[in-house]
Every structure is written in structure tokens, then in C-alpha cells.
Amino acid sequence: MKQIFKKVSSLCTVLLMMAVLTLTGASAVWAEEVDDTVKQTLITTAEGLTDTIVTLGDEDIENYSKSSDAFTTSAMSAWAGSKSELGALKERSGEVEVKASDDGYTVTVPASFEKADANFVYVFDGSTGAPTSLTVDVQYSMAETLRRAVMNTIMGIAIVFIVLIFLSFLIYLFRFIPNPEAKKKAQAAAAPAPVPVAAPAVEEPADDTELIAVIAAAIAAAEGTTTDGFVVRSIRKINRKKR
């Protein structure tokens, strides 16, 4: 089975080219309508490819995935992504559908598997007749579709809550990050207010009225006169040196 895809692809190309050259003589007719002979050739080729692909094991898929042929790698990628969801092939059920396009053909091969049904959608090149790509379209049941929708909704809500919790945790950690500006403001608010300094008291000149009256009376007594004969205008202290 190592060269099975190359052989099938080569056979497909030869058969399709022979059919086109025999029936139409030009590849432009392919895009306009599907001739019965060409249609049957496409169906046979697509069914043969499907029967071959579904029997490949994991080791075969891995080996063919390393091929340089674009269709082979595309087919292996499509089947590897759907194999576990489908299980083993039960039968190829339903009618194979062939549609023509401007640049080739699209062939859909329905098949029933143990776990679900699937459509193998092949694209054939209109000028060469060779298959270019494969898509495995899994047909999920209504119950499975609803189950997947519910699971996706739950996953979305869970992711939103996880992100919110993570953001809340980050915001909580901000309080442990040092902030010099806030620290300075807190220290300034906690510092005691400066005590106002009292202005020095200004000494008011002493009232010497009583002292002048006493001195005047003493002088008058010493002189034997009254205080009417003289007036004491000022008092000055004289520092006498001790002998």
C-alpha cells in the first residue's frame, strides 16, 4: 500500500484525460456540463479513493502525509482529523453527487460509519482531471450537534470566568507593589504640624511717675522745701565703681 495513492491518482488522471479527449476533444466543455461517461468515471475514481482512504491505518496515514503530492497530503490531513470521530466504515450509502464548475468538478461521496455519517468531498481539476483536494464533512446528528453547542457554551462561559478571576487576582496584587508617591503623601499627612513660634515680647517702657514723685518728696525733705520749687524731668542710673 505504500504507492497506492500514486497509482490511484495516475489511473484517475489517465481515465479522465482519455474520457475528455474522446468525448469532447477540449477541456473547456468540462465546466459547461457533465457528460454521463465523464460523470461515471469521476464517480468510480472518487469511490475507489474513498474505499482506499478509509482502510488506512495510523502508520500508513503518517507515511503518506510526508508525500510531496499536494492531494495526498490534503487527503491524509482531512482523514486523520475525522477518523476518530467516525470509526469503522459500515457502507457507502446514498447517491454520489457530481457538480461542474468553471475550473473543474466537485464529487461528493456519502458514507456511513459506526459513530456518524460523513461526506467525502473531492475536487478534480478541469484541465488535468486529477484530484486536487479532499474534505471530510462529518454529518453530526441533532443530539450530537446540541451537545457540542452546549459544551461550547459552557467552555466559553468558563473561560470568561477564569479570565475575570485572573484579572481580579492581578488587581489584588497591585497593593503589594511599592508606590513612592503614595508613600510620600502618607508620610506628609502623618507628620505633626509645626508649632508656631511666639513673637518675642516687646518691653514697654516702665511708668516712672510714682518713682519721680517719691524722689521729688525726698529731695524736698532734704532741702526743707516743697516740691513746688523744682520739677524732676528724668531719672538716670549712675554706675559707681566700688573702691
Rank of each mutant, 00 (worst) to 15 (best):
D102V: 13
S101W: 01
P131Q: 13
L86C: 13
G129W: 05
T106Y: 06
P131M: 14
F124Q: 06
D117T: 00
R92V: 12
D103P: 06
S133E: 15
S101L: 05
S127E: 08
D102F: 04
G104I: 02
Y105W: 14
E95R: 08
S84R: 14
K83T: 12
P131A: 15
K99W: 03
T108M: 03
N119K: 13
V121T: 14
G94N: 06
G94Y: 11
F124T: 12
P110G: 07
G104C: 10
G104Y: 05
S93Q: 02
N119C: 01
P110L: 08
V98R: 07
G126C: 07
P110R: 09
F124K: 04
G87M: 07
L86K: 10
P110K: 09
F113C: 11
V98Y: 09
D103G: 11
N119G: 04
S133D: 15
D103N: 15
A88P: 06
T108K: 09
V107C: 03
T106M: 08
S101A: 14
S127R: 06
T132V: 15
R92N: 14
A118P: 08
V123L: 11
S127M: 02
K115M: 05
D102A: 15
T132R: 10
D103I: 10
F113A: 12
K90F: 03
V109N: 10
V98I: 09
S133H: 12
Y105I: 04
D117H: 03
A130N: 10
A130L: 15
S84Y: 07
G94Q: 03
V121D: 11
A116Q: 07
S133I: 02
Y105D: 06
E95S: 13
G126E: 02
A100I: 02
D125F: 03
G129E: 11
Y122Q: 06
F113V: 11
P110F: 11
D103S: 15
D103C: 06
A130Y: 14
L86G: 10
S93D: 09
Y122A: 01
S93P: 00
D117V: 00
E97T: 14
V109T: 09
S82W: 02
E91K: 14
D125H: 04
K115E: 02
G126I: 01
T106C: 02
D102S: 14
T106G: 02
G104E: 07
K83C: 08
G94P: 02
Y122G: 03
S101H: 11
Y122S: 02
A88W: 07
A100M: 00
G81H: 11
G129L: 09
T108P: 03
A118T: 06
L89Y: 04
F120V: 08
P110Y: 09
K99T: 14
G129H: 06
S112Q: 15
V121C: 07
S84E: 15
D103R: 12
A88F: 12
F113Q: 10
D103L: 12
E85I: 05
A100Q: 07
V123P: 02
D125Q: 12
G126K: 04
V109H: 10
G81V: 00
Y105K: 06
L86D: 06
V121H: 05
G94L: 07
K83M: 12
A111G: 09
E91R: 08
G94T: 04
G81C: 01
V121N: 07
S84D: 15
L89T: 01
D117M: 05
A130I: 13
R92S: 14
L86F: 10
V96D: 08
S84G: 06
G104K: 05
G87Y: 09
A116L: 01
T106A: 01
S93N: 13
V107I: 09
